[in-house]
């Protein structure tokens, strides 16, 4: 065969592939990876539906329609009651459900293995996804907050900084839970479970219904769920301007436990 023939017939100049190995700069690796992860999320139609359109529809619908149990409202306007819960839902949707499903399919397509074979260190592989998750949550909060403001939302100014702390912590906690789920099971199973968990936590996990509206000890238990903790923490911060450490502890424990477990169970393919 002629392929082993003279080099002069090659379409490649001698020296084209002369080795020049070495790892890229960390900052550039992180930036490129996080930017790609973010734009993959933002251009994925189902992700946008889940992370933005459904929370927006609930925010607008429940703030304008008269379907909320008015007994829970006390003196609050509906949008003030609703917005902290919708922000908690936004974090649950993108950092947990969206993340888990994306990771499940990324594994099937072999991208983790592909990237693990490059100079990208393992911690950067995780960091890139985390930065992307934080960017997506930031965008969600900006859009949802702007729409809520148009509906008359007036958050307690003194609680905003603490709400940001809770949002970051919530993103990390739900992100770890999302990696735990998406990193170990078949993508079809991840898809089903991530959506079921999303729906259950939305209805019974302290997001749409206040824990105090649930019967008996259920309300106390719901506060120990990451969803209930995040929603209640955000409610206290944004409506009363109160700093509550219970939710912080709950989110931290769930997050650390999920991350520790995920490092053992996550598989590349």
């Amino acid at each position: 065969m002629s392929t082993t023939g003279a080099r002069s017939q090659s379409r490649f100049e001698p020296g084209t592939f002369t080795p020049a190995p070495g790892a890229g700069r960390r900052g550039r690796m992180l930036l490129t990876h996080a930017r790609l992860e973010t734009s993959l999320t933002l251009r994925h139609g189902e992700q946008i539906l889940l992370t933005l359109l459904i929370p927006l529809a609930l925010l607008v619908g429940l703030s304008l329609l008269d379907v909320l149990p008015t007994g829970e409202l006390d003196s609050l306007s509906k949008v003030d009651w609703m917005t902290p819960r919708i922000l908690a839902l936004a974090v649950l949707s993108s950092a947990f459900t969206g993340q888990a499903i994306a990771l499940g399919f990324d594994r099937r397509y072999g991208v983790l293995k592909r990237l693990s074979a490059t100079a990208l260190p393992r911690w950067l592989l995780v960091a890139g996804r985390l930065v992307a998750a934080l960017v997506v949550v930031t965008l969600q909060v900006l859009v949802l907050g702007a729409v809520a403001a148009l509906l008359g939302w007036s958050p307690s100014a003194s609680g905003i900084a603490f709400a940001i702390v809770l949002l970051v912590l919530g993103t990390l906690c739900f992100g770890a839970l999302g990696v735990l789920l998406g990193g170990s099971l078949r993508p079809e199973l991840v898809l089903a479970l991530a959506n079921i968990v999303w729906f259950v936590l939305l209805l019974a996990g302290g997001i749409l219904l206040a824990p105090s509206a649930l019967p008996g000890v259920a309300g106390d238990l719901v506060l120990l769920l990451p969803s209930g903790a995040l929603a209640e923490g955000l409610r206290a911060a944004l409506t009363e301007g109160t700093v509550t450490w219970g939710p912080v502890a709950t989110l931290a424990v769930w997050g650390v436990a999920a991350a520790a477990l995920a490092t053992r169970t996550t598989r590349l393919t």
Binding site: P21, A23, G24, M29, T32, L115, T118
Partner: peptide, 12 residues
């Protein structure tokens, strides 16, 4: 390809 290239010091 750009992502993988970013992981290298002197990529093609």
């Amino acid at each position: 390809l750009r992502l993988v290239a970013a992981c290298a010091a002197a990529p093609l």
